[in-house]
């Protein structure tokens, strides 16, 4: 169901979550469930949002939940967004913490691995 929006891989220590396309009220819950199911045992999580063409408040809610959950468990997380783009705009408008956001996947992975 959600394969068109979300896929998973590993990068070093971290579980890497790839998101793409439009994430909104219609699919955010399903995507969130899939991500949580795949990352419950993760030591670190990278969420790549560079291919997301639209992100609404429901998507923000989903990311907020995942970040909070990992924070509670003391696991690091980074949200990779491009220099520009819809996802970055929305997250900035929502004033996500700067330390969560990264523009470069490699750098973020190194951060988490270190």
């Amino acid at each position: 169901m959600t394969d068109q929006w979300v896929s998973f891989s590993r990068r070093g220590m971290a579980d890497l979550v790839h998101l793409k396309g439009e994430i909104d009220l219609a699919n955010a819950n399903d995507i969130g469930r899939v991500i949580v199911a795949h990352t419950t045992a993760a030591n670190a999580v990278l969420i790549d949002l560079t291919a997301v063409s639209f992100l609404d408040s429901a998507g923000v809610r989903l990311l907020d939940y995942i970040v909070g959950d990992l924070d509670d468990r003391g696991k690091p997380i980074r949200l990779v967004v491009g220099e520009r783009g819809a996802a970055r705009m929305t997250l900035q408008l929502c004033a996500f913490r700067a330390d969560l956001l990264a523009t470069d996947l490699e750098r973020a992975a190194t951060d988490l691995g270190g």
């Binding site: 639209f54 992100l55 609404d56 819809a86 408008l93």
Partner: peptide, 21 residues
């Protein structure tokens, strides 16, 4: 332009979502 376009799409989506939800 793209920035305005993205902003309008976001606002419009949120407003519609608000109506639906």
């Amino acid at each position: 332009d793209t920035e305005c376009l993205n902003a309008v799409l976001l606002a419009c989506s949120e407003a519609v979502a608000n109506s639906i939800e």
